[in-house]
Nucleic acid binder design. Sequence first.
DNA 1: ATTATCTAGACGTATAGATATCTATATTAT
DNA 2: ATAATATAGATATCTATACGTCTAGATAAT
Lengths: 245, 245
Amino acid sequence: MSDISNTEGIPLYVKIRESLRQQIASGELERGQKLPSEDELATQFGVSRMTVRQGTSDLIDDGLLYRRHGVGTFVTLPHIERDHSRLTNFFENSDKHGIHAKATILEFEVIHATPMIAQALLLESDEFVIHIKSLRQADEVMVTLHDAYIPHRLFSEMIQEELHDFDVQHLWSKFEKNGYPVKRAVQKIEARLADQELAKVMQIQAGAPILFKERTVYAEDGTPVEFTYCYNRGDMYSLTVILNR
Amino acid sequence: MSDISNTEGIPLYVKIRESLRQQIASGELERGQKLPSEDELATQFGVSRMTVRQGTSDLIDDGLLYRRHGVGTFVTLPHIERDHSRLTNFFENSDKHGIHAKATILEFEVIHATPMIAQALLLESDEFVIHIKSLRQADEVMVTLHDAYIPHRLFSEMIQEELHDFDVQHLWSKFEKNGYPVKRAVQKIEARLADQELAKVMQIQAGAPILFKERTVYAEDGTPVEFTYCYNRGDMYSLTVILNR
DNA sequence: ATTATCTAGACGTATAGATATCTATATTAT
DNA sequence: ATAATATAGATATCTATACGTCTAGATAAT
């Protein structure tokens, strides 16, 4: 043991990962620079080589490092943090950017699933779903209209709550409490125009650009927990995603 | 050694991964089903437990499996293949779906980088970039207009080629040949309206919805190799992305 | 009945090697 | 000079083993 003491129960590879991440962030390890070899790092940190690899592998997934077989491990030039393309809650995201986010629930009802929704949520076509229509504002400006559908079978106790008590901000943590932690989402994205109805609700012009998302949210085990149509104001909303080859 | 013989130079963990992937695809391993324990799999495949984990870890990244500490490894319910959100070439993608793709080069020039482009490509503001404006068709329908900018410094020999010889389809393989294999892209997506100029070029109505992408493509080492404005026909083009929490 | 504790099984972390393969460089042979 | 070859260093793959931690269920104590 040398640099890294086993304080608390934090795994060694996590400490190594964070130590390297910090060294990169601080500029101690410069862009494009070659890291010490895995053997060397193992010696420096006083761990085995496999443990070093476990740490660096995480940073490679994050896009901070890359390896060249037979050559070495290097710091990537611009740091594209994978964080920029992670699944986030509207409110989490707003918080982080210091934006005041608010949601107003327009409708809250239990209905039969449409074929489209049933297919997305893996339900029988006659099953019930909870429908929540909500309007989201960022700094008092209406940005998004959500039409969310949730399997009634999985979250029936949610409708026990009063409408004004209901907290759309913590919908996902509610899923988690019920044993379905939100893990991933598949989103189909399109450009559309606002029709009369949408324009009225969002207080924009009919024919204004709308970034339309059709999103299915899945729990850890792959259970679909939410299917949502999102209508985002085109001039107020953009989406950044990172794709790998 | 049992199931998996070391034919060729394919790593064991890759064989295990693909064997499991095939078993999942064929339904031999059912959705939601628990896999044999890691120890058992190691015995079955005649390898060590760590090798099994290397294989299953890949499938977890792909979203086909998930682990529960102290419980086991399971097959996810619907199979969201990560492939749906990987960075693909317009032509590769069309090929796979049996669509006839074609690109027409409208402009091909060397210009000074604008501040925006210079920033994205990490260039000095006076540096040269190669500008390629191209129109992409899928089954004879115009779908996308591309404005691509490439650092002249890195790929100067590309302009030696004749314009009609130039193959925009293999731009990325050209990058690769020059030592910059395409690795990742950051895309900012917006909904916009077609202006007069764009409408004319793409033969659509002014005011039609456009899915606008601002994309920076990076090589393995993080070098930006391409910055592109993409204007996609809203009614012909949608984008599917998978996000993880 | 309810609560606390034990325990078996499974994944999580970590070690200390061994061998293979790849890359860049230096050396040698032509 | 040029091309083939050797070599050193680095990552890639893999083994066998050990102990930690978590979960679910069984058992025991209250």
